[in-house]
Design a protein around this nucleic acid. Structure first.
Lengths: 108, 108
DNA sequence: TGCCACTACCGCGCTTTGCACAGTAGTGTG
DNA sequence: CACACTACTGTGCAAAGCGCGGTAGTGGCA
């Protein structure tokens, strides 16, 4: 099945969630999301989301050199990002609860 | 917050869910979805979804005259639609579980 | 009679967003 | 030196939900 459409509007939240745990760079965020179960997420989607969130003022950004590869652009949550995470998580919670209730009506 | 993006890819499932309970026409499906909690769903989205699902062969369709207004175009699930509902519900279930797990990691 | 509200449907065009694809680099391995 | 892995970027596309406007049918009300 193609669950890519399900990510719409939720990838932001997912990225915020992993960054809330600890700062991370793009390639790392992709890995963490896939390990978390979102294995179909595209790398370009994550990079795009990070740039979008940064542009929206929700993330801090700093570049760190690496011994084993190219530089890494780290991202982390700031206050705006934490606020965004809180409200998004809440919205998602009520939305998924609504959907769960809708799907549970198995009285046919 | 704008939860419209959350509907992406899930509106199909929501529409299938209400039609699984019983047949319905567009305007009625909109009302039922809103009563279920998806109060921000646009009517054009539902009509579009119904047409799309019908075109995909998941729905039956029949027009019924009404005493109190315009005609009503009823839609109902066929075998394809029921199959689609089953797999979509399953996909949604695992996806939302993944998201729940991701959000629950409150160990900062 | 004229106006409005509610019901019911459709089409156009816009925006967001995830993604495929391609490209650029740095590092290490055979 | 080719290749794999790491790491980031840009372009352009397609799907989907929605705002808006339009078309009708019915009925109420002054």
């Amino acid at each position: 099945m193609d669950s890519s459409q399900l990510l719409k509007g939720v990838l932001d939240l997912a990225v915020l969630a992993v960054l809330k745990e600890r700062d991370g760079y793009g390639y790392d965020v992709v890995r963490r999301l896939r390990e978390a179960g979102l294995d179909e997420v595209g790398d370009a989607s994550v990079y795009g989301t990070l740039r979008r969130l940064f542009k929206a003022g929700a993330l801090t950004s700093y570049v760190v050199a690496s011994d084993e590869g190219p530089h890494r652009k780290y991202y982390g949550l700031n206050d705006v990002g934490r606020q965004m995470y809180a409200t998004s998580a809440k919205t998602w919670g009520s939305f998924s609860a609504t959907m769960a209730a809708l799907l549970k009506e198995e009285r046919s």
